[in-house]
């Protein structure tokens, strides 16, 4: 990790060089130490599928996988992801083939406005990895850290159930 000062503009800004592998591609960028991973993905790498829905780490719209674990990317600094592997919603499908969870969301009408969807899908992927055969109650508890205001969660629960079934 390299740290240097930029002196352009009205004052010095500290930058840190990081390398993060996102969806299989390594990216080396100089970033402010305070830059959130969510903003790194969106504003530096232009991967705008990761959404920011709150400023208190409640809503879960920004959920991505960091070294295989679901994290709220608004709660991680980009510099903390230095050297890590990140998977975002853009990296989930295999070419034109959706993951079981993505397909489940489409088949079961698990989304309406779509804003919470990327985070909800990334959380669901992690949930099914830990528990490939969850009960309804386990699904509801598993996604309780992600808010959706459109669906009443019912078809999201159905979508995850369908994905679990398809994964067998």
């Amino acid at each position: 990790m390299r740290v240097y000062l930029e002196t352009s503009g009205k004052g010095p800004t500290m930058s840190t060089e990081i390398t993060v592998t996102v969806n299989g591609t390594a990216h080396t960028e100089a970033v402010e130490p305070r830059l959130l991973l969510a903003h790194f993905l969106r504003d530096v790498l232009d991967l705008t599928g990761t959404h920011v829905g709150c400023d208190t780490s409640q809503c879960g719209a920004c959920t991505v996988h960091l070294n295989g674990e679901a994290v709220k990317s608004c709660t991680v600094f980009a510099v903390q992801a230095d050297g890590a592997e990140v998977t975002t919603i853009e990296g989930l499908a295999d070419g034109d083939t959706y993951s079981n969870v993505q397909q489940g969301f489409w088949d079961e009408h698990g989304l309406q406005c779509g804003f919470c969807t990327p985070g909800m899908i990334m959380t669901s992927e992690a949930l099914l990895k830990q528990n490939p055969n969850p009960t309804e109650e386990e699904i509801r508890e598993g996604i309780a850290g992600n808010y959706c205001r459109c669906t009443g969660y019912q078809n999201i629960v159905n979508a995850i159930g369908a994905a679990a079934k398809a994964g067998k």
């Binding site: 969106r42 232009d46 991967l47 705008t48 599928g49 990761t50 959404h51 920011v52 975002t88 919603i89 853009e90 989930l92 499908a93 959706y98 993505q102 969301f105 489409w106 088949d107 009408h109 989304l111 779509g114 804003f115 969807t117 990327p118 899908i121």
Partner: peptide, 21 residues
Amino acid sequence: VKRTEDPRLITGRGKYVDDVR
């Protein structure tokens, strides 16, 4: 009928205001 909006929204290719650059 299944939604035609969904393929872009489940792959992170929707375009909301914050995605306008």
